[in-house]
Structure formats: structure tokens, C-alpha cells
Design a protein around this nucleic acid. Structure first.
Length: 305
DNA sequence: CGGGTTTGACCTGCGC
DNA sequence: GCGCAGGTCAAACCCG
């Protein structure tokens, strides 16, 4: 079981987030990647997944036992800092970080030469500048490889051993200039076959088209489009990945709470096409369905009256 | 040679 | 205040 026994401890005080467009404008994004690069703001994401911006870390997960397909995704809500207001406005995000940054500003300005070279952290930072924390969301993926192709190009900038885990955590940042999206990848110590990927921020550019192996085409559309990729050997030319959105508490919105798994959905469904788990006729209330229609029109077609 | 990875050092936040 | 753990930096290294 993939539960919240290992809280990811995500936190966020969002600031500049793109105008909420949601998933469902007429030019509906159809890929997970689009979600990542800013077609969807965090609030919409949170809302769509039944998350409350003011709630603490919520983890939703499940697995389908007894089948080769054991896809898991966790969408986590990243709350604003406890002391800040519940909104995700840019103003409120600034207040908190402001303090941090002043604190983060030692006497480096007086350092010269070699001394300065040791204070690597003070480079390019001036008083009053703040390090903005972007909203994050995380998901778990069954994969044999740590770094999942998501259509974007990433550059690894660090790796750290994780406490209580034999697996290190890797830190990536988008290689596109001016794109500040970060990504952390770690393997679950509870289930080594599960990779936990955390995205922070939104891409401000389209998915690169000239990727090695055309990963963008390979990965992105497959997430939200029911396709043979689920449940079959399939379109993954390079490695094996299994993937599934796990919508939290669709028919019990707000009742789940931290770490509550939507166990009502995670079994007895068509494991060969996990996406069908979330077919509206089966799981979603009308209200949720509306949200889902907005989010994933391809998955939740409009119902004729 | 340019771009990506590795890795040790450093910084910060947080709990005690 | 101290220690720990997470996060970031950047030099060194690797590779195509």
C-alpha cells in the first residue's frame, strides 16, 4: 500500500502563478506536460483533485494488487505556510520569504576574494531579494528508471542521500533558459519499484520537440489519453513505466483528509485500463465530473442531457 | 568543446 | 544554541 506513511513534506508559498486557465478551455490541454508548463495553475490543479489549498499535505495513492499494472500517482497539495493566509496570491508569498532572505544574507558583501568563493550561496543575491518557493506537486510512478521522461529536458544539479532510505534523491532543473522549474526524483524506500517525482514550479515554455527519442510525444499524451499504453506492453520503447492519475476522494470531497486513500476506487476496476477507474459514470459526482470535464475533456466527455 | 553528471562543501530551516 | 537533514552550488569530471 502506498499511503501517507512517508509524508513528502512538501511546502509552498506560491507567488507568481499564471492566470488560472484550468485544464478545460476550448483549447484544452491534453497532456500532463501542458499542465506542467503552465496551462494549469496550482489552484486549479488542487481544486480539480479535490484538494483544499488550506489543507496540509495530502497524499492520495493506491495500487492494484495482483496485476502487472500497479500504477500509482500521488498528487499532493502543497499548502501555504501555516502562518500565511490561505490564498496563493503573490503578495502573501512575498511576506514570508522576505524574512527568510534577509536572514539568508550574511556579511558576504564584505567578503573578498577567496573568502567570497566559499560563500557560494551569496552569489548574485542582494538584500531584499527573495527566493520564491513555487507550488509543487508530486506523484508516484512505477518505473524501473529513476528519471522519467516527461517531455522536458532536465539537468541534474544535485543528489543527496535521504534519511531512512537507501536511495538517494536527485535534483533536476529544467535546462530551458529562464525556466525555473525544479524536479526531485527519489525512489520509495517502501517500494523500490516506485519512483516519487516532485515538480516545483511551472514551465514557461512549450515542450521541446527535438527530444531524444521524442519523449514528449511518448510520454505526455499517454498520461491523459486512454491508450494501449496502460495494461500492455506498449509504446514505451526505452523502459518500462506505468502511470496513473489517482483522483482523490471524488465522491467524498473534503472528507478524505490527510493521507486518506480513496480505497473505494482502487480495486475492482479495470486494471487493464486504469484510466477507466475514473470514468465519471463510475466514480465521480456530478460536481466533480464537471471539474474533471474541464480538466480532462478527453477522459470525461460532456454528457448529453 | 559544449553540455550533462558527480560529488563534496556550504547554507538554511527546523526541531530539540 | 546546536545538530541534523534537506537543498543548492560549482569545480571537476565525463561523454558525444
Amino acid at each position: 500500500m502506498y499511503t501517507s506513511s512517508k509524508p513528502l513534506g512538501l511546502s509552498s508559498s506560491s507567488s507568481t502563478y499564471g492566470a488560472p486557465q484550468g485544464f478545460g478551455s476550448s483549447s484544452s490541454p491534453t497532456s500532463f506536460s501542458e499542465c506542467l508548463h503552465g496551462s494549469m495553475d496550482y489552484n486549479s490543479l488542487a481544486k480539480a483533485f479535490g484538494l483544499s489549498p488550506s489543507s496540509s499535505s495530502e497524499v492520495f495513492s493506491s495500487t492494484t494488487e495482483g496485476d502487472q499494472t500497479k500504477p500509482i500517482i500521488e498528487i499532493e497539495n502543497i499548502p501555504a505556510t501555516p502562518n500565511s493566509s490561505a490564498s496563493f496570491s503573490s503578495c502573501e508569498a512575498g511576506g514570508d520569504d522576505e524574512k527568510k532572505d534577509q536572514k539568508q544574507q550574511p556579511e558576504s558583501e564584505n567578503l573578498d576574494g577567496e573568502e567570497c568563493s566559499k560563500k557560494v550561496n551569496n552569489k548574485g543575491k542582494k538584500k531584499g531579494e527573495k527566493k520564491e518557493r513555487e507550488p509543487r506537486f508530486a506523484f508516484m510512478t512505477k518505473s524501473e528508471v529513476d528519471h522519467l521522461e516527461d517531455g522536458y529536458r532536465w539537468r541534474k544539479y544535485g543528489q543527496k542521500a535521504v534519511k531512512n532510505s537507501p536511495y538517494p534523491r536527485s535534483y533536476y532543473r529544467c535546462t530551458t533558459q529562464k525556466c525555473k522549474v525544479l524536479k526531485r526524483v527519489e525512489r520509495s524506500f517502501e517500494d523500490p519499484s516506485t519512483v516519487i517525482t516532485t515538480y516545483e514550479g511551472q514551465h514557461n515554455h512549450p515542450v521541446p520537440t527535438t527530444l531524444r527519442g521524442n519523449a514528449a510525444a511518448m510520454f505526455a499524451p499517454s498520461i491523459l489519453t486512454p491508450s494501449p499504453i496502460f495494461g500492455g506492453p506498449s509504446n514505451y520503447p526505452h523502459h518500462h513505466q506505468e502511470f496513473l492519475f489517482q483522483f482523490p476522494s471524488m465522491s467524498n470531497q473534503g472528507g478524505g483528509g490527510r493521507g486518506a486513500t480513496n480505497s473505494a476506487y482502487h480495486h475492482q476496476q479495470n486494471v487493464n485500463n486504469p484510466l477507466q477507474q475514473y470514468h465519471p459514470h463510475q466514480v465521480a459526482s456530478s460536481h466533480d465530473y464537471g471539474l474533471l470535464q474541464d480538466m480532462f475533456p478527453s477522459m470525461f466527455p460532456k454528457q448529453e442531457p
